[in-house]
């Protein structure tokens, strides 16, 4: 039971990271696509919350290395390179954003920060998605002596993982565009976000189908796995049914409904994936896997983890909502 509870909290944290952190990352991507016009909106919208959003990732990390240390060490070895790339992206993104936001005035020196912020906003989710892809695909070699390429490169540098990278990047920018519809101050800006939301949603659908095909091509029967399980099947149907609904709310500009629906859609995709992946953490190319059961730390550790997470949830969630509430009211 404790293991499942911890997994649930981790899932929720990952979900929040996708929605809230994702909106942050996506903002950088959108800024790249739309240029100077959106800088102000974006800075204003994410500055007060980005640090808190970022902590969701820390939480996921801590839960993994505390509750499932073997998973943490295996990922750190086998996916060293993409994780390092993610890390470099995060360094540049976080610092560039803050540097330009808190600088005394805007002048020509800012173009370097703009560049770093946008480029890393684009690349970080891409590598994050690739890492996730490698975890799903199951090409990771349990044998470290199989050669540098086979062990450290092949598991993540392949068509499926690139597809996953693109999917994650697009998903983040989609979440962000929807969020920004309600934040931009000019009609022109709003129009841009609306168009972007719709286009990226359609692109996401297509990319999703492509990923299924790529998985098939790479020898992973992902689509069948989705169909085989009632939960994941239901989530696919639900996520698709939400599309016209979301289009309608975007048309009608119902900001809050739209945000909830998109959040729901992301959650549904998440649940579907989790159902397919469960209970595996990392799949190896010899058919074995690290699962949440064969890697879970002992009961004493989990008891502490559950206590820390429960206390954390009880204190942090209200504080988090307070933060958002404070910044929702117009002054």
């Amino acid at each position: 039971m404790m293991v499942e509870f911890v997994m649930l909290v981790m899932g929720v944290a990952l979900f929040f990271y996708t929605v809230l952190g994702g909106a942050d990352f996506g903002a950088g991507i959108i800024e790249m696509l739309t240029g100077e016009r959106s800088i102000r909106t974006i800075s204003k919208a994410i500055a007060p919350v980005w640090e808190a959003n970022h902590v969701w990732l820390i939480l996921v990390l801590v839960v993994i290395f505390n509750g499932f240390p073997k998973v943490f060490s295996t990922m750190s070895i086998m996916l060293h390179i993409p994780l390092l790339l993610v890390l470099v992206g995060m360094i540049f993104r976080g610092t560039a954003f803050t540097f330009r936001h808190y600088d005394v005035i805007e002048d020509s020196s800012h173009r370097y920060y703009h560049f770093c912020f946008r480029a890393s906003s684009l690349l970080t989710p891409f590598f994050l998605g690739m890492t996730l892809g490698a975890v799903i695909l199951g090409r990771i070699s349990p044998d470290l002596n199989a050669g540098f390429y086979a062990v450290f490169i092949a598991p993540w540098l392949n068509a499926f993982c690139i597809g996953m990278g693109l999917f994650t990047t697009l998903l983040f920018s989609y979440v962000s565009a929807v969020f920004l519809i309600g934040e931009v101050e000019t009609e022109e800006g709003r129009q841009i976000m609306i168009t972007y939301s719709k286009r990226s949603l359609i692109a996401l659908m297509l990319l999703g189908a492509l990923i299924m095909a790529l998985a098939e091509w790479s020898g992973l029967a992902l689509f069948q796995q989705f169909l085989a399980q009632p939960i994941s099947l239901a989530t696919i149907i639900l996520a698709t049914l939400l599309i016209p609904l979301i289009f309608r709310t975007i048309e009608k500009r119902q900001i809050n409904t739209m945000r909830v629906l998109v959040g729901g859609q992301v959650a549904v995709i998440f649940i579907g994936w989790a159902a397919v992946q469960f209970p595996d953490f990392i799949r190896f190319n010899d058919g074995t896997a690290l699962t949440i059961y064969n890697t879970a730390a002992g009961a004493a550790t989990f008891r502490q983890l559950v206590i820390a997470l429960t206390v954390g949830v009880l204190i942090i969630l209200p504080a988090f909502f307070y933060l958002f509430k404070v910044f929702k009211q117009k002054v």
Partner: peptide, 12 residues
Amino acid sequence: GDIIGMPFSWEG
């Protein structure tokens, strides 16, 4: 990880 995870999770 599982032995000293506790201070880290509180740190989180």
